[in-house]
Amino acid sequence: MIAVKDRLRAEPKSRWRFPVTLEGMLYLLPSIVLFAVFLFYPMFKTIYLSLFLTDAQGNAQIFVGLEHYSQLLSSPSFRASLKATVLFVLYTVPAGVILALGLALLANQKLKGIGFFRTLFSSTMGMSVAASSVIWLFIYNPAIGIANTIMTTLGLQEMQWLLNPDTALISVAIPTIWMNTGFSFLILLGGLHNIDASLYESGKIAGVSDFYSLRKITLPLLSPTLLFIVTVSLINSFQTFGQIDILTKGGPMESTNVIVYSIFKDAFVNFNIGSASAQAVLLFAFILIVTILQFKWSEKKVHYQ
């Protein structure tokens, strides 16, 4: 047996082996091609176009450097769009995460018929943005909408929900929270199911309250899931478009003209592709900075099991 092993070692390796690095790159090639075509090329093309004046077809004509950026930063309209975007994020993200967390905690209880409520709470995931926005368009209708019917029933004055600059942004934020709650609820419920039940049993034996268990067990162990939900919710809120287009079209008086809708108008209504590209680059940079700061801040707040 030993002689056979020695003979095998002595035989030269005549078979050519494929380089490991090249083999790995071949496995990654489909993903690399998809990222290159649908992510990297559009991103670099957007940066390129932001430095040029373009024609109506989006072809670069005259190099202007950073002129689009300087015009945007000094533009009252862009600053109003930035303000509307930040306010929209502040309206939707904290309220949406807290609502989804409350529903997940409720649905995590071992109660009879709780499966029905789990289905109900996650049902908004099955509706498109367009369909949901049309439903809320009817709800806010000044003549036949249920929102004003509730207001008059409570003895309050009817409101022009989508036509008043003071209430339009909040009126769009409410449907957004409703639409995004289903996804956040399911992810948080999955995170709650991954927490070891023995920890709660030990807490009950020690005589701690439910609130203490929530603060010291549930939230620390759920923090990675919460970080994911907050990050995704932030990015989605910054990129909101569909409900704005259907409900208000950026009005009234540009009170709901968030940056993504401003990009759409500049690109496909005014055919100012250069300015729209510059806004897209600024939005990307803003989201990137906010995400990095969030991860830096949460380094000491997130606990992994």
Rank of each mutant, 00 (worst) to 15 (best):
M25L: 15
H303R: 13
L221W: 06
R9Q: 15
F238N: 05
S202H: 12
S75I: 03
V37W: 03
G65T: 08
F88Y: 14
P12H: 11
F183V: 15
F284Q: 07
F138V: 15
F295H: 08
F116W: 11
S198R: 14
A267Y: 02
A197V: 08
L120P: 01
G65H: 06
F63V: 12
S132D: 07
M43R: 01
Q61C: 13
V20D: 12
G126Y: 15
L111G: 05
T218S: 11
T218I: 07
K300Q: 07
V232W: 10
L28A: 14
I246R: 12
P175T: 00
L66Q: 12
V290A: 15
V86E: 04
K110M: 05
F238E: 05
A285M: 14
L188P: 11
R215V: 08
G274F: 04
S75A: 09
G24V: 01
Y212S: 08
D55P: 12
M159S: 09
G96E: 04
S233Q: 15
L219H: 07
V269D: 13
A147H: 01
I246Q: 09
L101H: 02
S223M: 05
S132H: 04
N108T: 03
F268R: 10
T92Y: 00
W297R: 06
W16I: 09
L82I: 10
I114L: 08
Q305A: 14
L51Q: 09
V232I: 14
G155V: 05
K296C: 03
I263Q: 01
L189T: 07
A3R: 11
S50A: 04
S298P: 02
S171C: 02
A197D: 09
E158A: 13
T124K: 03
L105S: 06
G102I: 01
